[in-house]
């Protein structure tokens, strides 16, 4: 009976997801093309990134609506008028984690794995919006791109584990984004996500009921981390996220 309920809720979600995407993506594409004809590139990119956030926002709220048992709780998310940009670093348990970044009311670009670029349509949109594949980008190019985005006022979201955790533990962090932080002196904001590990679990598209919690911690200014080297900085941030997720899961 429980399985039937989950199957029904998944059908409801995916039907709504595809129906919405089929209607929204062509409409938003047309909107972006019209914008590109009239407005300068910087404005168009800003709009495109907001459009991606709107789409993500609707998708995550679709499964709140279609899944009566799924809750999303978020705490401390920056306000729209926050003085950015920021570098958000986040633990990573599920493919759905990237969607929760739509809750951030800022212009953001995500540093992602290779596979999101291979998703039909979405991969193209992500590339157009300047999303960066860490594994396919040499560090010098990665640093140049992210530094330019930060200079333009665009915040960066990174999942420094590089891949989803298979055991809910926070994996070792990669230092690339922390090297950029040390160079650009941008505040780093730890974001902790719990409960997403089964929504959906690794290797499956079946969403399961649960409660996803997203907690944003206080931004850490360069004055607080600038004395660290990249290795100690990444481990310092990792420990902050480990400690906070443990508190959240108590």
């Amino acid at each position: 009976m429980r399985f039937l309920k989950i199957a029904y809720l998944n059908l409801a979600f995916y039907a709504a997801f595809f129906a919405f995407s089929l209607a929204a993506i062509p409409a938003l594409t047309l909107f972006m093309v019209l914008c590109a004809l009239v407005f300068p590139r910087r404005y168009v990119m800003k709009r495109l990134r907001r459009v991606i956030s709107w789409w993500g926002w609707v998708v995550i709220h679709l499964y709140v609506l279609s899944f009566s048992l799924v809750q999303i709780k978020h705490e401390g998310i920056v306000k729209r008028d926050a003085k950015g940009p920021f570098i958000f670093v986040c633990n990573h348990r599920s493919v759905s984690d990237a969607f929760y970044m739509a809750l951030l009311p800022l212009e953001v670009v995500q540093v992602v794995n290779v596979w999101p670029f291979r998703i039909p349509i979405l991969g193209i949109v992500a590339k157009l919006a300047g999303y960066i594949s860490l594994w396919e980008t040499p560090f010098e190019e990665f640093a140049a791109k992210t530094s330019q985005l930060l200079r333009d006022g665009v915040s960066i979201v990174a999942f420094p584990e590089g891949t989803r955790s298979r055991d809910q533990l926070v994996g070792q962090f990669h230092s690339a984004i922390f090297r950029v932080a040390l160079e650009t002196k941008i505040p780093i904001v730890p974001l902790c996500i719990t409960g997403s590990e089964n929504i959906p679990p690794i290797g499956s598209l079946l969403l399961r009921p649960g409660c996803i919690r997203i907690r944003q911690l206080t931004p850490i200014a360069w004055e607080e981390y600038g004395h660290m080297n990249p290795y100690t900085l990444k481990n310092h941030m990792r420990q902050i996220i480990i400690d906070e997720t443990a508190v959240m899961e108590k």
Partner: peptide, 14 residues
């Protein structure tokens, strides 16, 4: 070096 000590490819350069 990678899994226990947590170094990555950039740390290896250092």
């Amino acid at each position: 070096i990678f899994t226990d000590l947590g170094l990555d490819s950039l740390d290896i350069v250092d």
